[in-house]
Design a protein around this nucleic acid. Structure first.
Length: 114
RNA sequence: CGAGGAAAACAGACAGCCGCGUGGGCAGGCCGAAAGGCCGUCCAUGAGGAAAGUCCGGGCUCCACAGGGCAAGGAUAACGGGUAACGCCCGCCGAAGGCGACUUCAGGAAAAGUGCAACAGAGAUAUACCGCCUCCCCCGUUACAAAAUGGGGCCCCCGCAAAAACGCAGUUUUUGUGGGGAGAGGAGGCACAGCGAAAUGAGUGAACCCUGCCGCUUGCGGCGGGGUGAAGGAUAUGGAGCUUGUGCCGACGAGGUAAGGAUGGAAAGGUGCGGUAAGAGCGCACCCGACGGCUCGAGAGUGUCCGUCGCUGUAAACUCUAUCCGGAGCAACACCGGUAUGGGAGCACACAGGCUGGCCCGGCCGCUCCCGGGGUGGCUGGAGCGCGUUGGCAACAGCGCGCCUAGAUAGAUGGCUGUCAAAUACAGAACCCGGCUUACAGUUUUGCUCGCAAU
RNA sequence: AGGGGUGUCGCCAAAUGGUAAGGCACGGGACUUUGACUCCCGCAUCGUUGGUUCGAUUCCAGCCACCCCUG
């Protein structure tokens, strides 16, 4: 993941949590908000409640992979945050992928369809 | 073959597609004056045995020189070695456990001092309740005395004297003395159990008394306030007492003794013989333990040796002895750009206060709060890893040859498919090493011990 | 990275190495026609695993969980 397309600062996360639109699905939470950069940025969150470092790393990697494989279908110019839940670790890959697409469709992030 | 114990090794592999970090290459593309940056492509490489917990020890960096003195605190604890060092490792001694291979041990000092040892038990750090023995006194018997032998030294009642306690009167207790009585078929006492009277008794509040307001039936009713407070009353408190039961002690003077006596974690070294009035390490033999000498060993220690002695346990209670310890941590620290001792607010102008983790000397600095704080280095070649060889029982050390094996900075290893019987154990580097502790599915190898069977 | 603290009944909590106080709650009983009040009785792996000790909630060590502080 390139440095220009990730969210790093704590105030950026706080701004999305407060002002962004959100959607909840099995295994993840998605926040999004429009930016003026013309490309997308992604933030990932895995809390201590998920488990040790191994579990948190695994949750982040699965969410990042979901975002990477589906990024050509997304509209540009949005900030997004994916928050890991307990089912992020245990859910099968197909279910995780479908959930991400369903949340994006709900928030109007997919290219082409209204 | 079964059971056990020790030491090591591994920690999914392979193939395909998409994707990530770092390093290097490219007569590739774009931006830029340049340095360089971005993209693309190829190659190499990319988490652990515990990376974890952060429990010890170091390296490294800074604290002015990391300095002097004193005190406190902390850590460790047989002995010898290894190591940069350690609380780690190896060997060995001792103790405990196991038939054994082997495992475990915070393993200095209790004879410097202080503290603690409930309950039980006669007695708990030294005692004398019983017992045993001697002596004294009284009584009986034989035959006056002497001597011998047997029994007793208690308890109850009455009188007298003295002392003490309760304010006096007076009462009680103790001691002495006189008389009488009971008593080994047991006076008297203790413990447990049973029965159990009086009395106390919370909250509750029948009834009565005083009083306020309202109603009309004018002395009754209703609603309130205050006081006295009956009966009853809990498996509660209490415990006078009993022709109650069961069990035990049970004759009490003076001295000696520490053999025996239901306890306890621990009872004054153990067994036997002698000895004695009875006894006792009082003496002897054997055994056990402590200390000193001698032998062996480098030492802790050891022993068919000699001498002295017989001492409770606890120091993960205080304490004593010996040894070691300055502090902070890569968010350390250094450099670049930069106004850089950043900006703002408040307090203060000195015998104050802060830092040098306690105090003194010495040294340094105005203090507190809020906001902001980019990049690079440190950053991985090291007390490194593998193989061989030499020394050593070993830990380990020396020499030779070969190898380079993560370095991120919101944090790189992921997703899908297929094959292998199955692989979803514990778990993610963050300055680096040496250990310890804890978690862990399973697989493999090499010695060793015990049992059974066969040869 | 460094430092500090706590864990005792369902809740709040005390305790010198020698039987684990107390209050609220809960269960049973007494009182009452019944309920309430009141009284009596009952109710604990002392976070966990080892060790020291005759004996551990207490002393020591290792784990587990939670909370707090500094940068």
């Amino acid at each position: 993941m390139k440095a220009a397309v990730t969210l790093k600062q704590n105030y950026e996360f706080r701004r999305l949590y407060q002002k962004g639109a959100s959607a909840v699905g099995g295994g993840m939470v998605l926040y999004c908000r429009k930016n003026r950069l013309g490309h997308n940025r992604l933030g990932l969150t895995a809390s201590v409640k998920l488990g040790g470092a191994v579990q948190r790393n695994r949750a982040r990697r699965r969410l990042r992979e979901v975002y990477r494989l589906n990024s050509p279908r997304l509209r540009q110019g949005w900030d997004m945050i994916l928050v890991a839940r307990g089912r992020t670790l245990t859910a099968p890959w197909g279910e995780l992928n479908d959930t991400f697409l369903r949340l994006c469709r709900k928030l109007g992030l997919l290219e082409g369809k209204p």
